[in-house]
Simulated scan of single mutants.
Amino acid sequence: MKKQAVVATAAVLLSSSAGLGLASAQEVVKIGHSAAVTGPVSYFGKDTENGARMAIEALNSRGAVIGGKKVRFALMAEDDGGDPKQATNVAQKLVDAKVNGVIGHETSGTTIPASKIYHQAGIPQISPSSTSPKYTQQGFNTAFRVVANDVQLGQALGRYAVRNVGARRVAVIDDRTAYGQGLAVEFAKGLQQQGAKVVAREFTHDKATDFNAILTKIRATKPDLVFFGGMSSVAGPMLRQMKQLGFNTKMMGGDGICSDEIHKLSGGAMADGQVFCAEAGGVDAAGKAAMDNFRAAYKKRFGIEVQINAPYAYDAVMTMAEAMTKAGSTAPARYLPALANIQYKGVTGLVAFDARGDIRDGTITLYTFKGGRRTVLAVTK
């Protein structure tokens, strides 16, 4: 072989080995995210996706090292459309892509069926927003959430309805989704524990637009308060039709209606102080500065305000990354035990899970609306 050929071959081999060394030096850690980024609640889904993306960018900017190796995090964002069937298809797609972990899904109705697929694949899943108790009651060691569940939320709303709003006679409506129905059931329990009465129980669906029949029936029972288990995409038009019927009673709901979007969707029919809602999460005075900083950074990055769950999606990603760091591995089976025992101080407070995967000491924030904007009433547990 000629000298020039030997040199050229050596150069190619050296270049190839250097490339292999670079590839092995920086592992790509794939984090899946799934939520409804199209459809009537897309503003919630995009909110959590943005929060997860901010965390990915923060991790990469600091140059993450896990198990002595440089890693680069990549977000695999998928749209489940808020549909349970689509959610299972997305879950299988993420499993087939061999993601290292999943943040999502957004709603309880999508999170629960998808969780079975992640569990079968042994992939850890942290929901930043799903509140149905059923999610963590399935016995899946891969399922976690960073917000309080509907038992906590319903009890807090029941107490507030009686003690602070003065409600004694309450009509309850839900949208028949896993989230809406579950929250309505827990609220009714909390309400009755306080000595108040459910005077009407009605149902609609999550794409309904006409509520005149059920509102007319409810109005006849003369309730002090209407509780709605569902999303603001339904609650907004419902408030508009309540006003058209001259039925201007107060409304209460969970985090599904706890967005400034409800004012727009009501067509301006929502009066100041008419609607009360609770967010599964929230920070006390000690955590306010960190949350304010996050909100400012979010607005700078995306040009819009946080809806609700972006900081929880951010903390979910950071918690997962911290578990990987503690385990010294990005392999799901290796870092899963570290995740189950994690104690991570995040933007939303301390993230630590109980034996089921529920957040320990989850907080609840109660709001009303003034001038179409959410106003904090109280942070409680």
Rank of each mutant, 00 (worst) to 15 (best):
F211H: 11
N212D: 15
I214V: 09
L215F: 11
A220M: 07
A220R: 06
A220N: 04
T221E: 14
T221F: 13
K222L: 01
P223D: 13
L225M: 12
L225W: 11
L225H: 12
V226E: 01
V226F: 09
F227P: 13
G229S: 14
G230T: 02
M231I: 11
S233F: 07
S233T: 11
A235I: 06
P237V: 10
R240Q: 14
Q241A: 10
Q241W: 01
K243F: 04
Q244N: 12
Q244R: 14
L245R: 03
F247W: 14
F247S: 08
N248E: 10
N248M: 07
G253M: 02
I257D: 08
I262K: 00
I262F: 05
I262R: 00
L265D: 05
S266C: 07
S266K: 09
S266V: 15
S266M: 12
G267C: 13
G268H: 08
M270D: 01
D272Q: 14
G273H: 10
V275T: 12
F276E: 12
A278K: 13
A278V: 14
E279Y: 14
G281S: 15
G282C: 13
G282H: 13
A285S: 13
A286T: 15
A286G: 07
G287C: 14
A289W: 03
A290N: 06
N293M: 07
R295F: 00
A296C: 14
Y298D: 07
Y298K: 10
K299I: 14
K299S: 09
R301H: 01
R301F: 06
R301M: 08
R301N: 04
G303M: 00
E305D: 14
V306P: 08
I308W: 03
N309D: 07
Y312Q: 11
A313R: 04
Y314D: 03
D315R: 10
D315K: 09
A316L: 08
V317A: 01
T319L: 00
A321K: 00
E322F: 09
M324N: 01
T325V: 06
A327F: 07
S329C: 05
A331E: 15
P332K: 10
A333H: 09
A333G: 08
P337M: 14
A338C: 02
L339W: 05
K345G: 02
K345N: 03
V347L: 00
F353D: 12
F353Y: 08
